[in-house]
Design a protein around this nucleic acid. Structure first.
Lengths: 218, 218
DNA sequence: ATCAAATACGAGAATATCTCGTATTTGATA
DNA sequence: TATCAAATACGAGATATTCTCGTATTTGAT
């Protein structure tokens, strides 16, 4: 529908389908990163709705024209940040589940996931704002939906190592639910002061082993 | 800061602090409701970000000037809807917890909450959009935060009837977490097709009694 | 019938996002 | 190094959207 005049290096050749292009030249790459960095700062300060494109222009010195050369719209900037942080989260989960060999490894692994997920939010509070932004925008909702599926998939893999012949739908449903509950508990916790948060995290971890029993009947 | 020229019936005399005023005259009241009804429709269709004030003007025939006589801004419309639906949810929970007299009543009550909460979302899919909208806007986040506290408070009341001398912080943390998890599970479920959703709901209910054991040590 | 308060109204001010044509820079090539 | 096409830079202004403000109309009490 919109054929480019000056054809660039194949639209969205990069990893994410959100950026207009991943620039090849040095300075461009740096600006691209600088824009994302700045957007994250602004989101942490003002929230996803309140920050303005003009804020980015001011802070980075990158003018509008260039900004929109990298990202088709504001949503794409938030989406790119969401993809990055989701990817970091997945790496965490993958790592935390890697050592699961037998049933006895499962509970400690889930506890590690809870802890590292919580720590991620503490280290990068903007993650909360990014997650909130993805909830409101239908284009971005899919990102978290996909991430949820991906995360559940990782847990399914681990569970299959424990119970190779468990029925797939049961494993899948269980994994989805467990990951959903972990995420919800952690997101609830990070909204509280540290002490209260620890209480909630600790309580949740004490609940977890009980819930694992529900896996048996499926 | 903004002294009204034509002083109205005491600003925000109504229930919610969100509407500019709850109109006293017949036709006004009807319009007020019609606007909310229309906004809910639009949110269900397009999402909270995509629907336009001008959409409301077109569909209801209420012109801009009047629209803004009832609501100070777009956020206030969404906020008013959120308050209403939150109130309905609280009534459900209150009702479902009312019959809890002893420990054995607790689990069935929580199951009722899960079911009625899920049913609410099925009956009024716009609730999901409203919830999502409240996540993104910092002004609206407080509404759900308060609602969460309120809901947890209802569960605390019920728990106190069971265990009158349990330590308050433990009861409170437990209640917050349980309500958070119920909400998360249900919101996860409603995004799925009915069959899958039932599987998740059912699985969650099977997990619940196990988690209640964690209440004992606190 | 009269009047003040309440409500109605919509043009346009204010604010944001995003586009488009033109200018500049870059790196490959001879 | 001189040349050129592709890539990147740029920002004024086109477009879109929210919200205000002054004026006109309606309402209900007296």
């Amino acid at each position: 529908m919109a054929a480019k005049k000056t054809k660039q290096s194949e639209p969205e050749a990069g990893a994410s389908g959100l950026a207009r292009l991943v620039p090849t030249q040095q300075r461009s790459r740096e600006r691209f990163e600088r824009i994302l960095e700045c957007a994250a700062e602004l989101m942490a300060e003002k929230g996803s709705e309140a920050f303005r494109m003009s804020d980015i222009v001011e802070r980075t010195g990158v003018p509008f024209g260039s900004l929109y050369q990298y990202f088709p719209d504001k949503t794409a900037i938030i989406g790119t940040l969401a993809e990055r942080y989701n990817a970091i989260g997945r790496d965490c989960v993958r790592r935390d589940l890697a050592s699961v060999r037998s049933a006895k490894d499962l509970y400690p692994a889930l506890c590690r996931i809870v802890d590292s997920y919580y720590q991620m939010f503490v280290d990068e509070p903007v993650m909360r704002d990014i997650w909130q932004a993805t909830q409101a925008d239908r284009a971005l909702q899919k990102l978290d939906e996909e991430d949820g599926i991906h995360l559940a998939g990782l847990l399914v893999e681990a569970l299959r190592r424990i119970a190779p012949n468990a029925p797939a739908p049961a494993l899948s449903a269980f994994s989805q639910l467990v990951m959903t509950l972990i995420a919800a508990a952690v997101r609830h916790a990070i909204a509280l002061e540290h002490k209260e948060a620890q209480r909630i995290i600790s309580l949740f971890k004490r609940m977890l082993p009980k819930t694992l029993v529900a896996l048996d009947n499926g």
